[in-house]
Structure formats: structure tokens, C-alpha cells
């Protein structure tokens, strides 16, 4: 430490931290307030459309973990019937290559991201768990046709006039983070 500049640099830095005291906090109190994730989120539970799946097995080849198990038998002329379509979300790395490779749009990434399980067996997603339901919706990753209905992602690139962050010292009251929050 030199006195040569009489601590002007220190004073400048401290002025900046003081300025930040009056800026909105970044903390999102997670279980109480949630951000809107990206429309293309590669969520934890994939969505499988049985009517569109032909059982071609491209997804199983595309998976770099060798994680997708597909068992078919020959049914109607020129058509495979899928007996078993299973993947272990505990082993999956959610790279999205299976979704990308599917030629019939029969597989999509899920929207959910809070999928912790108590037992390892529960992470295995079989045909029933992969089906589309009201709670189990596909994301728009590589499937832009699903993007329309999804909410806008909350971004940190805020602007006050866009209804962005405001200084609020009382944390649990409603606080918005981005224009679309």
C-alpha cells in the first residue's frame, strides 16, 4: 500500500459499493419465487409421442450414453409396434441429441426441472411416464412448433421502464426480475 495517491482508488471503489447498496438485489428466493425458464429448456423428463414413433431406433443410436432402450416387434405390414421405450434420467446427460436426431418429431425434451427422486428406480422413465399429460409438457428444444404457447423467459437484462427490477428491501413481497417475469 502506497500513500502516493492518498487512497483515492480505495475511495473510488468504496463509492461504487455504496452505489450498489441502492441497486435491486439479484437474489431470487427460489421455492417462493421462480424464474421462467427458457422455452428451449432441456428439462429433466422427456416427452414421447407414441402415435408418431415408428420404432426406427435413431434416438437410441444418437444417444452417447447408450441410455435409451427400445424394444419393438413387427405388427401391421411395414410397421413396428413399440413394446418398450425406456430411458434412465439418472444416467441421461440431457445433451438433446436424441431429440435432434428423431426424424418424426416423436421425442421432445421436457419442461420440468424439479425432478429429484428418493429412489434410484424412480428415475427410470418408461412409456407411461414419458407420455404427454397436462403436467408433462414438451419444451421447444429443436421443436419450434411447441414454442408458441410457452411463457417468455425471464431475463436479467432488465430495464426499469419495462417493468424490470426495482429496489425492494422487503424480500418476500412480490418482486419482478425481468420484463417477462
Amino acid at each position: 500500500m502506497k500513500f502516493e495517491r492518498y487512497g483515492i482508488g480505495i475511495a473510488k471503489g468504496m463509492a461504487l459499493t455504496l452505489k450498489h447498496l441502492f441497486r435491486p438485489p439479484l437474489t431470487v428466493q427460489y421455492p417462493d419465487e421462480k424464474l421462467v425458464v427458457s422455452k428451449r429448456i432441456r428439462g429433466n423428463e422427456l416427452v414421447w409421442f407414441p402415435d408418431r414413433c415408428t420404432g426406427c431406433g435413431t434416438c437410441t443410436k444418437a444417444c452417447l450414453q447408450g441410455n435409451i432402450i427400445l424394444v419393438t416387434h413387427r405388427g401391421e405390414p411395414n410397421k413396428f409396434i413399440v413394446d418398450k421405450f425406456e430411458l434412465d434420467s439418472g444416467r441421461c446427460i440431457f445433451c438433446g441429441l436424441c431429440v435432434e436426431s428423431c426424424p418424426y418429431d416423436a421425442l421432445a425434451m421436457g419442461l420440468e426441472y424439479e425432478c429429484a427422486k428418493y429412489r434410484r428406480g424412480e428415475t427410470i422413465l418408461d412409456k407411461d411416464k414419458l407420455k404427454l399429460t397436462d403436467q408433462h409438457q414438451p419444451s421447444a428444444y429443436y421443436r419450434p412448433q411447441f414454442a408458441a404457447g410457452l411463457p417468455k423467459q425471464s431475463l436479467l437484462i432488465y430495464d426499469k421502464k419495462d417493468g424490470g427490477q426495482k429496489l425492494n428491501l422487503f424480500p418476500l413481497s412480490k418482486r419482478k426480475r425481468g420484463p417477462g417475469a
Partner: peptide, 29 residues
């Protein structure tokens, strides 16, 4: 903010898996 932009484009915040041989995986929204 950067991670937000990447999440918007390719759906994840850390392991993006975005570039492909011969281009990128999908166009930006």
C-alpha cells in the same frame, strides 16, 4: 446475463452443446 442468452438459445446454462459439425444446432430465437 450471458448465461441467460445461452439458455434462451440452447436450453441449458452450463453445458451448452450448441455447435455442430458444419454449423450450429439451431437458429437463435
Amino acid at each position: 446475463k450471458i448465461v441467460d442468452l445461452c439458455e434462451m438459445t440452447c436450453g441449458q446454462r452450463l453445458l451448452f452443446n450448441y455447435m455442430r459439425v458444419g454449423g450450429v444446432s439451431q437458429d437463435v430465437p
